[in-house]
Design a protein around this nucleic acid. Structure first.
Lengths: 158, 158
DNA sequence: GCTTGATACGATATATCATAACGCTTATGC
DNA sequence: GCATAAGCGTTATGATATATCGTATCAAGC
């Protein structure tokens, strides 16, 4: 398993292949990865950190791609619906998906020092939440699993 | 395991014993369960649902206990720090703790139809998040585990 | 060509959630 | 009692998110 957010890696590849894969998937699904949507995805991919909608909007604004909140939120909604991005509930912020190839049961590890967010894939059926929900007769539709703490990089420095 | 939110139960007891236990704990810890804090706890205990800070504030306002947002947020902060209440990240809202006696590794089951929130206790060490974090060398300080879906009560009706 | 419907976008306004900062009051330890 | 800390009231503002209405674009069907 890889933890891009916490490890040195060729980051150019993350952005390029992220966008390329998203483009392929959109073509397959007959959807449009419009200029704004693509740019928002790139912005999110540019760092393994969560960004607020208004931070993203600032970039869009500077580039003349839109200046009002709905512009950012609509693009984010699209990216999230297609699984290209995730919302981090704990931060009210957004990250690019770093496991586009895989199916979805992400766990997010959020470093409170460097703000990096690592997405780890997991089998949702194995999760404690699923087990407890099943026992309670609760039908899970959506799962939020986030941990806040210190990433290995920051732990070494501290 | 009990799922008060999803089952018939003597709800008076929830409120009374919740407040009583909180009072005991505050005494032990040398803290003040002031009028406002106590009232906010009662409000939260009055239903097994998450309430927004402004909903709580409305009640306080109607009772002359405070009219500005900080009043509600301060009380909530206290209750959360003491473990008497929890924040539901997914909803930006708050619930009373329903397992005051137990230690903390709650999972929340949120019904999107009736808005009830059930708190289930779990051993945090067993959790998938802990396992994945450990593997990544990530030191977890705080965990968010929430599931949204349909509760058994609503499933029967639908 | 024209209409229709679907999708996306632009813009305004507003709703919702949260905190900083300041000064006053009350509780508590000595 | 007095000093200190804890709590509270209030104002102002910051941060996040959505409802709504109108317009542009494009493809499908006539």
């Amino acid at each position: 398993m890889s933890h891009y957010a916490f490890e040195a890696h060729d980051h150019e590849t993350c952005v390029e292949s992220g966008v390329a894969t998203a483009e392929e998937i959109c073509t397959e699904r007959g959807l449009q990865l419009t200029r704004t949507r693509k740019r928002v995805l790139e912005i999110l991919l540019s760092e393994h950190k969560a960004m607020g909608a208004y931070d993203i909007l600032d970039v869009l604004r500077a580039e003349g791609l839109g200046s009002q909140p709905p512009v950012a939120y609509r693009a984010l909604e699209f990216l999230i619906n297609q699984g290209f991005a995730h919302r981090i509930e704990r931060l009210n912020a957004f990250v690019a998906c770093s496991h586009l190839e895989a199916s979805h049961a992400p766990v997010f590890l959020i470093c409170r020092l460097c703000n990096s967010v690592s997405e780890v894939q997991s089998d949702s059926r194995k999760s404690e939440i699923s087990r407890l929900a099943k026992r309670a007769g609760f039908a899970v539709e959506l799962m939020v699993r986030e941990a806040e703490g210190i990433c290995p990089k920051c732990a070494r420095v501290a």
